[in-house]
Design a binder for these strands. Structure first.
Lengths: 104, 104
DNA sequence: ACAAGACATAAGCATACACTTATGTGATTC
DNA sequence: GAATCACATAAGTGTATGCTTATGTCTTGT
């Protein structure tokens, strides 16, 4: 189940950090490691988990592998969230923000 | 970190099922167990995790404890998701629906 | 061709987690 | 007021998970 993979992938704070980094621009695994105090295999394993969850996708470039955010994963979260829209109170600032951003 | 609690809580399929049940109407723990093949302590522990993540809140009624969806948790997911709005493909129906609902 | 670099995979290990059984707590019923 | 019910908590256990070190694969540079 992809839904399970997504939430499991995001349950780890290191993977959330990696994802956030990629959201600010595509990077290869070595660049991602910079300033993260994480071994090369650990990074590779985290990226594999994020890939399985479709939160990230790879693009091989020679001996480098460029990683970028995969919109599919985010779309699936949005879909999951949309199921519960009946519970979103209109007052919540986060949602207003959301609305504003999507309006343009 | 509440963000961590939320994703960790949703990483478990049993807890997602519980949450989905509650989204269809408030229930106490015993009612939630029906048709779920889960022990009473296990249910209690799952509800504690969902509570810590602010995905669910309790309302004590005598010796019963009624559980309902807590919009705060959902709002926090929406907030998290909003950070990556640049990557949301415009085509996604779930998001369009979302937008429409929030517009009124 | 060979050395080195970028990354993936394998195997082992310590910790986290979801479950179990047992017990505790507070509210209701008889 | 004693038994029962609804639920929480404690303690123990097997499995999942995230890490490590070691090694493999493919590409690039010389």
């Amino acid at each position: 189940m992809i839904e399970h993979d997504i939430f499991r992938a995001l349950a780890d704070s290191t993977r959330r950090t990696i994802f956030e980094k990629l959201a600010n621009g595509s990077m290869n695994a070595s660049m991602l490691r910079q300033g993260m105090d994480i071994s090369q295999p650990a990074m590779s394993q985290h990226l594999a988990v994020l890939r399985a969850a479709r939160l990230v996708r790879e693009q091989k470039e020679g001996r480098f592998v460029n990683y970028e955010v995969d919109p599919d994963g985010l779309a699936l979260i949005a879909q999951w969230l949309a199921k519960y829209r009946a519970y979103w109170p209109a007052r919540i600032d986060a949602l207003k923000l959301l609305l504003k951003d999507m309006d343009q």
